[in-house]
Design a protein around this nucleic acid. Structure first.
Lengths: 217, 217
DNA sequence: CCGGTTAGGATACCGTGGCATACCCTAGAC
DNA sequence: GTCTAGGGTATGCCACGGTATCCTAACCGG
């Protein structure tokens, strides 16, 4: 008899998803007992989950209480700098090590992208799968792990840059260039294309954030 | 009145150090209750620590039991590939952002290196401090965090490559080139010098491991 | 009368102990 | 020799108590 809990996963996954979906936003305080009743478990698994999230810098300590980490402008730039480098490496390695089947999957994911133009939420999910597939194609487990961490930190960013007008089509074109380079086994080109892709995404985010500040003033 | 426990740190630090020192070696199984009595604490903090170590891939699950992760040849290569890229990025950023005081500290650390030639254990510790200082000089908190992870994984490797005959002097010369490039603000040179440094260390390790296999045959 | 300091209460975290469960290993029977 | 059943063991969870910290309010000094 399965419980009718919100999720069947463990506490860690549930809290992570809650942050990702936006139930908890940067700056929010997380209280053990509160999470315990929300998810219908005891405080012990909650504690373990919170510690794991803290080691990943998704939560920070403010005094004795844990709050959802927030990224200021500097940290955003730092995050994107590391991301560009690691994604670039993944592309270079993927160009060298990807199996033909993996390249076909990448092409399929691009078709999926094309079908989803104009639906930012769905595009964002498809985008994650696309990048994850490249990470896996690098055939480097440490790199996959590191990139997982980076992408988890990006859950702290509320908006997806794919929601910005025109960004979805540009991103699609960039994806195509990346896969083309990987399929050709051209590591340098794949590296450059992916770094450029991340750079453009960062630029879009900065513009959008600046516009948001403008609008609120 | 302070207890006379082996360490005053928390369970996480204690287990990490035990792995680093070699009390627990790759492949060893870690049992909660066993660690609990060894460190004189209850099972709960042990459990939390083990989970944190598992998320960092220092421990892996074999069935329901946790064992210290071991790195095969492929994983070693993967680890060094990621490390080279991240350390290279750190050097590039350090060349751009390091404060004069930080560069002086780096030069001091090189002097320390020189004084310790021939003492592999001490050199290894000094080496960690040197690289950590470069990470910090990058002024990129995410990069520091990622590199911490990488270096923690290297605790799984029993030997330091600095123990190999002649490697210490080569490493010192390489350190000097790195700091010179950083001090000159030459990001490209610093990047190249550090990548080369990591590459040489990897090469040394491979040679040494091959020789060990030879000897045991 | 206002500001700073201190003391007290409350709240939330950390660690301990114990219980249930699921898995593994072993021994016995077919 | 293989399959099954039973016991043992380690893990996962929970409830509780101690303790450190934070907030608030009252008191004292200026």
């Amino acid at each position: 008899m399965a419980e009718t809990k919100p999720q069947m996963k463990d506490a860690y996954e549930m809290i992570l998803e809650a942050i990702d979906v936006g139930v908890y936003r940067p700056g929010d305080r997380l209280v053990e007992s509160e999470l315990a009743v929300r998810f219908g478990v005891s405080r012990t698994p909650i504690r373990e989950a919170l510690q794991r999230l803290e080691t990943q810098s998704l939560l920070t300590r403010d005094g004795r209480s844990l709050i959802v980490a927030s990224l200021d402008h500097n940290q955003l730039a730092e995050l994107y700098a590391v991301r560009a480098e690691l994604e670039g490496l993944a592309a270079r390695l993927a160009a060298r090590h990807a199996a033909p089947e993996e390249i076909r999957v990448l092409n399929d994911l691009i078709e999926e992208d094309r079908a989803l133009l104009g639906d930012p939420a769905a595009l964002s999910r498809a985008n994650r799968r696309f990048h994850k597939q490249i990470h896996l194609a690098s055939h480097n487990r440490f790199l996959v792990q590191q990139l997982d961490l980076v992408h988890r930190s990006m859950a702290l960013l509320a908006t997806t840059s794919l929601a910005v007008e025109g960004r979805d089509e540009d991103a699609l074109a960039e994806h195509e260039r990346i896969v083309t380079a990987i399929a050709a086994g051209d590591g340098d080109a794949a590296h450059a294309a992916l770094k450029e892709h991340i750079s453009k995404a960062f630029e879009t985010r900065l513009k959008h954030d600046a516009a948001a500040v403008e609008a609120s003033a």
